[in-house]
Design a protein around this nucleic acid. Structure first.
Lengths: 234, 234
DNA sequence: GCCCAGGCTGAACATTTGCTGAGAAAACGA
DNA sequence: TCGTTTTCTCAGCAAATGTTCAGCCTGGGC
């Protein structure tokens, strides 16, 4: 991970469950963001007024007021601040209601990978933030986040959602060793209860689809984890 | 041992087992950290408030409160203090989900080598602490912690996890004589029951893989131990 | 040069780890 | 609704790793 001398952006995370709040803020800090948290709507508006965040991550279900009202208030006090909504998986209707072009949403239970990716995407759209590349490339491997597409030596490859997220996580962390536990923690939903065996399966799928040419890019480090390594330094 | 004029960082170690607490604090002090210990959650929060540690090493299973609540409280009182969790190897329960808030974690039984390495890694990441190098070099030998890779004269070398930890221990202690007992204590898990014969085996493996060029770097001191000595002052 | 404790190393063995194919179950799309 | 895709589990296999040990080697004291 690149160490930034200043934060990528300032985020306000709003959720009434302390677990989720902690999970998100810890993870987002690790991803290089500056994070402020709030437990309910009132607090959220208050902090937003004072700190002017670049983006708000907002649970739709809050104890004191509904997320969309909060979003409205936020915009009153904080201008065009984009919002990433957190919603329950089955709340299909009300979602669309409050969404503007600048916004996006993620359903609970989410994976950290997903949240970070969405935040970056929104920031890219709203600020034209080009420190955040939309296209990743490692060796003959290319991945376009926005188009949700992957090419191997220029040929498009079909990946399932999980395969895509896993590959994305690998590419964002090129050259860094990732333990199976770490991969599980970031790529799978936070409520996933299974063991790290899935990761092996998906690495196997990925290799078959994506790592077919020599030199191989995805390396196994026994007892440690996996690395995606660019060619040239086996 | 090199005497440091100031501590590398201030740590708070929290574990209810006195053995583990002692083991850790002694070892961490020897590694140049300033260490405060606490036996339970209440104490931990109390000390954290007063001493503002740079990092907290925290057992997930505490008598009075669970480690995650402690971590939450610590963050409340002490800002963004990073946390390294200690957990049982088979913690496949809801614990695992909570571990995601950790900046890193180590499973029991651990090796001291591992704990120290993780602490340094976390401090490097969270503070951008560059006194702590991510890459070690001795003679033609290079070791990158983050990429978990070793080169000899620029050529990558494959090491097993134990070989890697042993070499790392040698490189961190370049020029210092290490007895077999000392090596056993730091590189092997604290519950390892075998005798120091293993160390001889692994030194042998390491020499074959890593110490192939003249002048030799790993020296045997009969009846005393081993030293990794940089060339030029044999 | 001889001796011996300590050190070295190859081989054997047990254990752990990772890979993969097959299949059950759930989610998805038409 | 039904077929298709996707996710996840599991078991068998193969290979790497960890550990022990016995026989050989070696440095250094005499």
């Amino acid at each position: 991970m690149i160490v930034l001398d200043r934060a990528e952006a300032r985020l306000l995370v709003v959720d009434d469950e302390p677990n989720i709040r902690e999970l998100l803020s810890a993870s987002l800090r690790r991803s290089g963001f500056e994070v402020i948290t709030a437990a309910d709507g009132r607090e959220a508006v208050h902090f937003a007024e004072r700190t002017r965040p670049d983006l708000v991550v907002l649970d739709v279900m809050l104890p004191d007021m509904d997320g969309f009202s909060v979003a409205g208030r936020l915009r009153d006090v904080s201008g065009q601040t984009p919002v990433l909504f957190l919603t329950a998986r089955d709340a299909t209707d009300d979602k669309v209601a409050g969404l503007r072009v600048a916004d996006d949403y993620v359903t609970k239970p989410f994976s950290l990978e997903e949240v970070v990716a969405r935040i970056r995407a929104v920031l890219r759209r709203t600020r034209g933030d080009l420190d955040i590349p939309a296209r990743l490339q490692v060796g003959t491997l290319e991945l376009d986040e926005e188009a949700h597409q992957v090419w191997v030596s220029g040929e498009p490859v079909r990946l399932s959602p999980t395969e895509f997220k896993l590959l994305h996580y690998f590419m964002v962390n090129t050259g860094r060793v990732l333990s199976k536990a770490q991969i599980l923690d970031h790529v799978w939903n936070y409520d996933f209860g299974g063991d790290a065996g899935v990761v092996e399966s998906y690495v196997s799928y990925l290799r078959r689809k994506v790592d077919v040419n020599e030199p191989r890019l995805i390396h196994t480090l026994r007892g440690v984890g996996y690395v995606l390594r660019p060619p040239r330094d086996d």
